[in-house]
Computed example of a mutant assay.
Amino acid sequence: MTHGAHPTGPSAEDLAPWFHNLHLPDGSQTRPDHPLGDFPRYKWEQVAEHIPADLAGKRCLDIGCNAGFYSFELAKRGAEVVGIDINDHYLRQARWAAARMELSERVTFRKRHVYDFARGATDNFDIVIFMGVLYHLRYPMLALDTIRHLDPELMVFQTLMTADRAVAGDAAGDVHFEDRETLDQPGWPRMAFIENSLNRDPTNWWVPNHAAILGMMRATGFRVVARPGDEIYICRPMAIRTGHWLADEFDAATGRADKSDEVGEP
């Protein structure tokens, strides 16, 4: 076995199965036989040069952190990192690995949804990692709106995508009410809805095409500045288009609405 052990606690094998193949300080790996290869290291290598090498003084958020690979890479560059996930198993792995890597003082792992950051939270982050999560969410636009309101300088985004990489020329314009065939043309922004499961995973809900990702980013106040790998987008904030986004709808959707405004109340 190549799994590392620790004399005062469980071994990596005790915490199996692993989805992240972490390279531990003793030279062992948590998932050396990963079917995707050295995952997610090879994805990090695609985005690493787009993230500042010195992150001292920066706060970073790793959404859907799993066993913490991206959190650890950011912490190694000096950042203060919060990793969130809703899976207790992954969080146990992440905390265990943080101790082995002596990064526990720089990385905090919490059991949270991305939506939790919309409920009046005062958290702000300089960099947000949002990789491999969107297609697992029932409410993807709400998640992107929530991230935008954290006001990050940079968001690293990755999602499962459909094979349609085209962009329809008139996708950003107005569509006449009776011209609905336009919505069916190749390259029109759309997301495939997964009612049952995809790859035997019932938490997969939406698979966007390339045009949908570009449009969703613009609609939530992000601009794509680079695409370092397939399905990976480096995004920077831009002004939120207020004509397309209503603050009261966001407040109502996230529970931030003032209940005293309800009909019939003084």
Rank of each mutant, 00 (worst) to 15 (best):
H3N: 14
A5E: 15
H6Q: 10
H6D: 15
H6E: 14
P7A: 09
T8N: 14
P10A: 10
P10Y: 08
A12I: 08
D14G: 02
W18E: 08
H23K: 10
D26C: 12
G27Y: 15
Q29E: 15
T30K: 07
T30M: 12
R31K: 11
P32W: 03
L36S: 07
L36M: 04
G37P: 01
K43P: 01
W44V: 00
E45W: 04
A48I: 04
E49Q: 08
P52S: 05
P52M: 05
A53E: 10
A53Y: 07
L55S: 02
A56S: 09
R59V: 00
D62N: 04
N66G: 03
N66A: 13
A67T: 02
S71Q: 02
E73H: 06
L74D: 01
A75T: 00
R77A: 03
I84D: 02
I84L: 06
I86Q: 09
N87T: 11
D88F: 07
D88N: 12
D88Y: 05
L91I: 13
A94R: 14
A94T: 15
A94I: 15
A98H: 08
A99F: 03
L103D: 11
V107R: 11
V107M: 09
T108F: 11
F109C: 14
V114D: 13
A118L: 12
N124T: 15
N124I: 14
I127K: 10
L134G: 01
Y139K: 06
Y139R: 08
L142Q: 09
L144N: 02
L154C: 13
M155F: 05
Q158W: 06
T159L: 04
T162Y: 01
T162D: 09
T162L: 06
R165H: 10
A166P: 10
V167F: 13
A168F: 12
D170W: 11
A172P: 02
G173W: 07
E178C: 03
E178R: 02
D179M: 06
D179G: 06
T182C: 12
Q185P: 12
P189I: 05
R190G: 12
F193I: 12
R200T: 07
D201E: 09
D201I: 09
T203A: 07
H210A: 04
I213M: 05
L214E: 13
G215D: 10
G215Q: 15
G215P: 01
V225K: 00
A226H: 02
P228T: 07
G229F: 04
G229V: 00
D230I: 00
E231P: 03
Y233P: 02
Y233S: 01
A239M: 00
I240S: 00
I240M: 03
T242Q: 08
H244S: 01
A247S: 06
F250H: 03
D251N: 08
D251Y: 04
A253Y: 06
T254P: 05
R256Y: 06
S260F: 12
E262H: 11
V263F: 15
G264C: 07
G264T: 05
